[in-house]
């Protein structure tokens, strides 16, 4: 069914718009970022001193930056695993014939429509160290007042929760679509063969969802590394004591607050490489196990 172009130039011409956009908005900025990362740059850009890999050496020699690496990794892992697990479960529940199904669906997809800053503000109301609802609730039920946002170990849990919750809607939409493509005949056949609901899910639904899961894995990975800045800025500002200072927040600090442009460029390049690397690994490993219908 494949068709071929006769002329030599037409395909290139048709690809041109895409490449123009990619070059202007992706390749050129990425290249510029890398170039800048090799300089010490004046806070307002009036001076540049070539410094080779100075910025990179400094960053990897800094205990704070390495800590940030580690925190980001744990954060990302939790957001991806918990997020995908929960949303798959919810999507399966939502895929049943229920009364008021549309209402449930809309409500569950809702969080995705919020901007990270708004989601952060909501969690701040809940976990505020002065008069948050959760503070009150835990005092009434458990008789303790945990330092939700002002102790490091709890703060990272709250941030993870918020980030997972925020992306749940997105995942649910894709899983629902995926579930609706699972052929009813296969499920019925398995049912007749005597397979229970759990077994049916594992041997039929789960493998058939694997393309969706793989896609979401990559999207959530990118989300967790790049998009949680707003949440953190509103909730903890990277604190307490750097406990929630993930890479993207450090990058924001260095560029927009400290105006250390060279460092920020290097961090940006590192983050970019890291996520591209992780994505490639996913394609090489998990990607091979994906079953496309």
């Amino acid at each position: 069914m494949q068709s071929y172009f006769k002329g030599k130039w037409l395909p290139y011409l048709l690809l041109l718009p895409t490449y123009v956009i990619l070059i202007a908005f992706l390749f050129y900025p990425a290249f510029e970022t890398f170039r800048l990362s090799l300089y010490k740059v004046h806070p307002f850009g009036i001076r540049k001193i070539f410094a080779g890999f100075y910025n990179f050496r400094k960053l990897f020699g800094s205990a704070d930056y390495l800590h940030s690496f580690w925190i980001s990794f744990l954060f990302s892992l939790s957001v991806v695993v918990i997020g995908l697990f929960l949303s798959m479960m919810i999507a399966v529940l939502l895929n049943q014939k229920l009364k008021g199904q549309k209402i449930y669906r809309s409500l569950l997809i809702w969080p995705y429509a919020l901007s990270p800053a708004i989601a952060g503000a909501l969690f701040r109301f809940l976990f505020n160290p002065v008069n948050g609802y959760m503070l009150y609730l835990s005092e009434v039920i458990l008789g303790v007042e945990p330092e939700w946002l002002t102790s490091g170990s709890l703060a990272i849990v709250i941030i993870t929760m918020a980030a997972t919750w925020k992306n749940l809607g997105y995942n649910i939409i894709f899983y629902l679509t995926g579930l609706q493509n699972v052929q009813r005949e296969s499920l019925e056949a398995a049912s007749i063969d005597g397979a229970g609901p759990v077994r049916r899910f594992w041997i039929i639904t789960f493998p058939l969802l694997s393309p969706t899961t793989f896609f979401l894995l990559i999207m959530n990975l990118i989300y967790s590394y790049f998009s949680s800045f707003g949440l953190i800025d509103v909730l903890t500002e990277g604190g307490p004591a750097n406990a929630t200072n993930i890479l993207i927040y450090q990058l924001y600090q260095d560029f927009f607050v400290n105006h250390k442009i060279g460092y920020a460029a290097a961090e940006s390049f590192i983050l970019f490489t890291l996520v591209v690397g992780l994505t490639l690994i996913q394609f090489r490993t998990t990607g091979r196990k994906v079953h496309y219908q």
Binding site: P129, V130, T236, E237, G239, P240
Partner: peptide, 8 residues
Amino acid sequence: DVGPGWSN
């Protein structure tokens, strides 16, 4: 300890 920011 109320954390950073100007509202808490």
